[in-house]
Amino acid sequence: MAAGLASQRVPGVPGGTVAAVFRAQVQIRSDSGVVVVPVEQLRLARFAGSVPWRRWRSHRGQPYLPGCYWAATVADHVVYESRLELERLLLASCSPRRTGR
């Protein structure tokens, strides 16, 4: 990375510089534990076997309706936290560009 670019200020980023953005890390949770991966080393294969961080729960009177949707495009259940997310999942699973495994 060019020295001038690395020191350029980026609003809203902890550390405030472009270099700080590239030091960011992602935590990926799986049944075997948590793996911390630098952003620049992220690959799609790293997410195989990953699980959601939060559990979805529901209770009487809550303003949103979380749940689980069987998506044929990924041949698995997909967790959603709101009806809006469910609508987006339904639209994505009907897309002609998406195919099953």
Rank of each mutant, 00 (worst) to 15 (best):
E87I: 00
A24N: 05
V39K: 04
V18H: 07
L90G: 03
V74W: 09
G61L: 14
L84T: 03
R57N: 06
L42D: 05
V34A: 13
A71C: 14
V74D: 07
V34M: 13
R23N: 08
E87C: 04
L90C: 06
G61E: 10
G67M: 14
L5F: 06
V18K: 09
V10K: 10
R60M: 12
G67V: 03
A75N: 13
C94E: 03
P63V: 14
V21R: 01
V36D: 07
R29V: 02
L84S: 10
Y69L: 06
R98C: 09
Q25N: 11
F22C: 13
L42F: 02
W70E: 13
R55T: 02
G15F: 11
L84H: 06
P11Q: 14
V34D: 08
W70K: 12
V37Y: 03
G61S: 10
V35P: 00
S7E: 10
R54K: 12
S82V: 04
S32D: 06
A19M: 10
A2I: 01
L44Y: 04
P63T: 14
A6P: 01
C68E: 12
P14T: 15
S95P: 02
F22L: 15
R101N: 09
R88M: 10
Q8D: 03
L5M: 08
E87G: 11
A24M: 11
Y80I: 08
L5E: 05
G15D: 13
S50E: 04
V79W: 09
E40S: 05
P63G: 15
E40V: 07
V21Y: 01
T73F: 02
S32T: 03
Q25P: 02
A20F: 01
C68W: 08
D31K: 15
T99M: 09
V26G: 01
R9T: 01
G4P: 02
H59L: 14
G33F: 08
T17F: 02
Y64M: 14
G100C: 04
S32N: 08
G4F: 10
A2V: 00
V39N: 05
R23V: 02
A71T: 00
P96F: 12
Q41L: 08
R83G: 09
S7N: 11
R98W: 05
E40H: 03
G49C: 13
A71E: 06
G49S: 14
P96E: 00
F47D: 05
S30R: 13
L91D: 02
V21E: 01
E85V: 02
H59R: 13
V51T: 08
Y69T: 02
S7H: 08
R29P: 00
P38Q: 12
V79E: 14
V78Y: 01
V37L: 09
S30G: 11
L90D: 01
S82L: 12
A2W: 09
A24G: 10
R46T: 04
A3E: 09
A72I: 00
P11F: 11
A6T: 00
G49W: 10
P52T: 12
G67P: 00
W53D: 07
E81F: 06
R97W: 08
V36Y: 00
